[in-house]
Simulated assay, not measured.
Amino acid sequence: MTNNELPALRWGIVGTGLISSWFVADLTIDRANRGANHTIQAIGSSSVQKGQEFASQHLSGHTPTIYGSYAELYNDPNVEIVYIGTPHAFHKQNALDAIRAGKHVLCEKSFTLNEREAKEVFAEARGYNVFIMEAMWTRFFPLVQKLRQLIHVDKTIGDVHRVWCDFGLPKDIASLPITSRYKDPALGAGSLLDIGIYSLTWVILALESNLRTETPQVLATQKIVHHVDVATSVLLNYPDGRQGVATSTFASKTPANFCRIEGTIGSIVVEGLAASVPTSFTIQLRNEEPQKYEFERPGRGFYWEADAVAIDIAAGKTENDIMPCDETIRIMHLLDEIRRQGGAQFPQDLE
């Protein structure tokens, strides 16, 4: 299939922070495994100057339309889909505004601050019949797809009974201004929504063969400093005895072997820069030499989720099979319960 035969999508980017810079850079990579053609049509920022600086730094050779407000981007008829890369607390309103302008939406994780907000956004998307998905990009990595096949289809390590995953990212919370998204509860601050969601995702992907079908018991604790969780530990207990431990912390950096999956005849260790960016995994069966699987990844890997979105929209779908709306709601429900037990609260929880 030539590039001209691939699905094509024109993106509007809302937010000009780090995650948006990674996303647009990945979409403009010239790669052999391209599944769709992507155009960065417009950039929406708090000012035209800020948007222009973002484009000049991250979009060499291409000049998108620059808007000094998000509303102008939503109303651009050339924008087909809006990518939301703003802090967690703004996701709900950004998504609602884009949906009401008739745009498809790809919204960064965590999708919203809580389950209630997520349900509101999805209901609005259904009403406008637009595509919507949480941008949990790691789920779309070929590495993750291969790993799930080996675990749940091929039963390479037998029946999985225990999983442990950690995401540690050093942050000196005390030194940050109260306005920082890492420190202000109103912005969804804390390790759980920022990085703990990845640990939780790995546990679920490794323990569950089918998404949205199981509800584990949650046992959680959090360390709260400056009204935000700087460390979270979660134990998921399943009725048949399977257990998953998901942890996150701002106190230290997780080693490269961030996840361990244990089965009845062997184990798997997943390696990478962090739980969000896996690069390889190693299978160790009893009395056998370890076998390592490595995967090529030009850029960072955001294009795999973007390709999936373009293919779905071209097919007339309004949600994705790998990251469907019900799965996002289930994850948000678990995150809410973890915070309820651990003590981290957002002002929006009381609305």
Rank of each mutant, 00 (worst) to 15 (best):
S175H: 12
V218G: 03
N287L: 07
S252N: 09
K292D: 11
S267E: 12
Q93Y: 15
A220M: 00
V160H: 01
V203E: 03
I29P: 00
F258Y: 12
S191Y: 05
P347D: 00
L236M: 06
S60D: 11
H38L: 01
Q52E: 07
G272S: 08
L211R: 05
K183I: 09
L176A: 07
I329Q: 02
T328C: 02
A32D: 03
E288M: 08
D159G: 06
L27H: 10
E288W: 05
H333F: 08
V270D: 04
H161C: 08
A344L: 10
H62F: 13
A174K: 15
E271S: 13
I19W: 11
E80N: 15
D172L: 10
A95E: 12
M1N: 09
I157W: 01
R10K: 15
M136P: 01
P185F: 10
N320C: 01
I195K: 15
N75D: 10
A251D: 15
N237C: 05
G35P: 02
T138N: 03
E319W: 02
A308F: 05
L200V: 05
A220I: 01
G342D: 01
F167A: 08
V269M: 13
N37R: 00
A8F: 14
D194M: 02
K109R: 14
A174G: 06
S199E: 05
S280D: 09
R297T: 01
P177G: 15
T156R: 05
K119M: 10
P255N: 13
L219T: 06
D194R: 10
L236G: 02
I84T: 13
P185D: 07
L200P: 11
L9E: 15
V130P: 12
G61F: 13
S233H: 06
T318G: 01
H152L: 11
A310C: 03
G266M: 04
I329C: 11
Q291S: 07
Q93L: 14
S46C: 01
V225L: 08
Y182S: 03
Q345D: 12
E296W: 08
S110G: 09
S46N: 06
E271W: 11
T16W: 12
V245C: 10
E108H: 12
I66R: 07
G127I: 07
T28I: 03
